[in-house]
Computed example of a mutant assay.
Amino acid sequence: MLILTCPCCHVTAEETEFHGGGEAHLKRIGPGGSEEDFERYLFMRENPKGVHLERWRHVYGCGKWFHMARDTATLEVFGSYPAQTLAPPDHILEAIRKRHPDWQWQRAS
């Protein structure tokens, strides 16, 4: 069981109060995008064993989307931050690198 904290309303609760929404920081493809770009957006997602940046929604709370960094192998949560943030905040990157010194964030393109 994950214990998550919503960065929008600051409620800490079990994961059942939230809903996962997949990979964070994806470049959305609009109507003018190519079929290849749209296919890559829909189907080619990261699914690592280890550190992953994800989208979550506080379904039974404020209803807002946010991003979270966690380790998919150990379920360790490194922190959460608002969905409008374009990159993981420095304090979350530091928390990740404390446990995984070689980890590098690759901005989704």
Rank of each mutant, 00 (worst) to 15 (best):
E94V: 08
F66Y: 01
W65K: 03
K98W: 08
L42S: 11
Q104A: 11
Y41E: 05
M44C: 14
A87Q: 14
F78W: 06
G50M: 05
G20K: 10
H10L: 01
P7L: 00
R45A: 07
S34K: 09
A69Y: 02
G21D: 07
H10Y: 04
F78P: 01
H67R: 11
L42K: 11
H19C: 08
W65P: 01
L26D: 05
A24G: 13
Y41L: 05
R55V: 12
A87W: 11
R28M: 14
G20E: 15
R57V: 07
L93P: 09
F66S: 00
Q84G: 12
C6S: 02
P7Q: 03
C9G: 04
A83F: 02
L2A: 03
V11T: 13
M68D: 00
A87H: 14
W105F: 14
D90Q: 12
L4W: 00
P7H: 00
I3F: 09
N47S: 10
M44F: 10
V77N: 02
E17P: 00
M68T: 02
D90V: 08
E94N: 13
R57M: 07
I96Y: 02
I29F: 12
M68L: 15
R55A: 03
I92P: 01
S109E: 14
K27W: 13
Y81Q: 00
S80Q: 03
R70P: 01
P31R: 10
G30Q: 11
G22H: 06
T16I: 10
R70V: 05
L26N: 10
H25F: 10
L26H: 09
T5E: 08
E36Y: 09
P82Q: 05
Y41H: 08
G30Y: 11
M1I: 11
A95N: 11
K49W: 03
V51H: 05
G63N: 07
E94P: 01
H19D: 06
H19T: 09
S109A: 10
H25W: 15
E36A: 15
L2Q: 04
D102G: 14
R107Q: 14
Y81G: 01
E94Y: 05
H19I: 11
L53H: 09
